[in-house]
Design a protein around this nucleic acid. Sequence first.
DNA 1: TATTGTTATACTCTATAACTATA
DNA 2: TATAGTTATAGAGTATAACAATA
Lengths: 171, 171
Amino acid sequence: MAVSRTMGAGTAKGKRIAVVSRHAEADASLEVDQLSQYLGYSLKRAQLRIFDDFIHCVAPLQLTPAQFAVLLLLEKNPGRNQTEIARTLGILRPNFVAMLDELESRDLCLRVRSDNDRRSHILALTEKGAAILARAKKLIGTKHEARLRELLGDDNRALLLAMLEKIAREF
Amino acid sequence: MAVSRTMGAGTAKGKRIAVVSRHAEADASLEVDQLSQYLGYSLKRAQLRIFDDFIHCVAPLQLTPAQFAVLLLLEKNPGRNQTEIARTLGILRPNFVAMLDELESRDLCLRVRSDNDRRSHILALTEKGAAILARAKKLIGTKHEARLRELLGDDNRALLLAMLEKIAREF
DNA sequence: TATTGTTATACTCTATAACTATA
DNA sequence: TATAGTTATAGAGTATAACAATA
């Protein structure tokens, strides 16, 4: 015996297991309610769903969420080097290299050796990069984020965003 | 001209870069406001932060969020097999094998060949698994989730959870 | 024939050490 | 000596095909 079905504490004797007594509910979906009460769990599930939809919406442009973030950051922060952009996005510098290689090979951004400090590469959007970014923003705004606003409502979406930012910054 | 500061397309000649003209703001933090307005981005940042804190809180028990989820699911759903548990958590069956090997090697759960269908392994918490799970719940409840409630407020936390679940289920 | 658990495998992400060229 | 970009590498996480045992 050692273990019963629910595996209990001490008394592992007569404990029958649920399998047998699961009659009406049959093989229905499992009990997940308690798990869903953990913010980490629900956060992760929602994040995966959101990223999935994001990728689907931007599929014609072949941009990952991370690549989109890089392009957007370059647009808003011209003249920054790799270390600054990577750090801001929480990407480690070594891992940022291949990512930039990919974006640069697609002519979406480029590295320019700085005159001030010849060690660092200043990053810049190319015209094509700016164009792709503009198209991505439009796709995401009209499809992805639009559906999200529809689902949650405008006020709730703003509240959700505010709480997520608060967690990221203050927790 | 083509592009000014954001770098342009072809003409790579006299293009000066912004570095020089960043005076007062110096090397302050970058502009991330627009990026933070994308739910996917803020969701991901918050999720990473939450997982980080979760892992830190249950460090004495050496449980990952995924392992905790498995144990909790086993407790609430006795008599289920690997496929059912894995599917519910969005884990692919092949990847679930090593995870169970680890949990079983630590005597936190065990596989029991089913009498009904000798192909399937019924999963069960061991006594030690139940004990570890109980301690994990307490740690998470009194540290992790408690601080979260403190940060957001009880009502807001409930609202946040409701929206995340809605996204996971209906988006 | 279909399904359960499994192996093998590959691809992405993430993480660390160490090299080079500059400072 | 310290820093920026890079290489190499290792570890998670995730994905698919295919096999043995069983249905």
